[in-house]
Design a protein around this nucleic acid. Structure first.
Lengths: 234, 234
DNA sequence: ACCTGAACACCGTTCAAGT
DNA sequence: ACCTGAACACCGTTCAAGT
């Protein structure tokens, strides 16, 4: 899978150490990092693996990238920006906000490591864009002016929160596992932690293992929007 | 600060290696871990530091604890359970839900590392309790039956999400830093990332650096509750 | 300017050996 | 049963030396 020459050119390298013909750059490094992260998860992204993948030394990477965190940040920014760029332009406020929210949901579903990083460093510039792209629709949606900041903030926090949870789930439910059985086990454990009671969890047990994450995510977005549209009483 | 004998007994140890008189136990280990985590942060919790703190060998810790993750999980469960236990029993639904939410908010404000762990492993038994303690009030609050699961889920996700963000903030804003200046800098950067536009962020800039996190957190909880009480139209 | 790769200062975890 | 601490297999990061 990881070949020394991954650019397709089959020319025999002059040096046995196989120095690449094309120059290193931050963009190329980030691209390689994303490949490793997607294929083998966050723990697999080591400077040694990355150096091998890029057919270089680990020190070379440090010439273009400050440290591991910088690398993770750049990779996260990359996939997030790409996802937000592809969001269809909507004309209706609710649909537009949903589209942004779902784009973030989906990009983190596809790249769980990005969700983890986003909830570790929420001041990413991509988060600013989420905030803006959502906030701009609150006025036309009818959210009172003095509730708009709280509302945009709640939505952003909610989206990043769910993103983080999803990243966690993806991390512990690697491909093969039976999602429904696992959720059922978690639910059962939650109930058994307090065998005397927990009536609400007992009642919700079925839904807990059968619900659709993506649909439930949107339900939460709708709650926040609906709640923010109401002029508060006290 | 970290003395070999921290139990107050000043008896001279028989061995120069200072073997403790009191036996090791998971409870004592977790307690020591919490002290280190609170005092010096998540990165400072190493088995070597913990072993020194407990005046033992690193291998001894493994007799009582599976691995580092197990330790972090137990510490998180510990502070969370303690915080939830102290929540005042309320009679009114909205006040009761707010009380639980604020308890989680405050415990993570006090122990940021717990917030980080909670958003990495949201199937903790403590999360089940949050879910139950909130969910049980939705019926009396007037949330329609078919919205209760989505609502409890949205609230839990929101709470854990904000918890994670707060943990992140606490991690990067260590004691001394000027919080307001830092938030202002983040806001400015977000605006400058797209100098053509970002009108919403521009408008919210002042609020971004001046708002009260705790109050904004509760505003989000109220949005979700208000939105869930409305019978949905489509 | 950019790249190399050995070296340094750490980790978590294991395990033979002790009591 | 429980504890000890050296040893192992890794890390991120640095840096003198190369081109």
């Amino acid at each position: 899978m990881f070949q020394l020459c991954h650019d397709g050119r089959m020319s025999k390298p002059a040096h046995p150490t196989a120095r690449r013909a094309d120059a290193l750059s931050k963009a190329r490094i980030v691209e390689a990092a994303i490949e490793i992260l997607d294929a083998r998860g966050e723990a697999a992204l080591t400077f040694r693996a990355l150096a091998t993948h890029l057919a270089t030394g680990s020190g070379a990477i440090y010439w273009h990238v400050a440290d591991r965190n910088d690398l993770l940040a750049a990779a996260t920014e990359n996939v997030l920006a790409r996802a937000l760029m592809k969001v269809a332009r909507e004309g209706e406020p609710r649909a537009a906000i949903r589209a942004v929210a779902l784009a973030v949901f989906d990009v983190i579903d596809a790249h769980p490591w990005a969700g983890a990083h986003l909830s570790r460093e929420p001041w990413h510039s991509g988060v600013g864009e989420i905030f803006e792209r959502i906030g701009g629709w609150l006025e036309p949606l009818g959210v009172p002016i003095d509730a708009q900041f709280d509302c945009a903030s709640a939505l952003t926090n909610y989206i990043l929160g769910v993103a983080g949870q999803n990243a966690a789930n993806a991390r512990t439910l690697p491909d093969g596992t039976d999602r429904e059985a696992w959720l059922e086990a978690v639910g059962k454990r939650w109930i058994e932690d307090d065998p005397e009671s927990r009536p609400f969890l007992r009642q919700m047990a079925a839904q807990l293992s059968e619900h659709d994450d993506r649909q439930q995510f949107i339900a939460g977005v709708d709650f926040i929007l609906a709640g923010a549209c109401i002029r508060r009483i006290a």
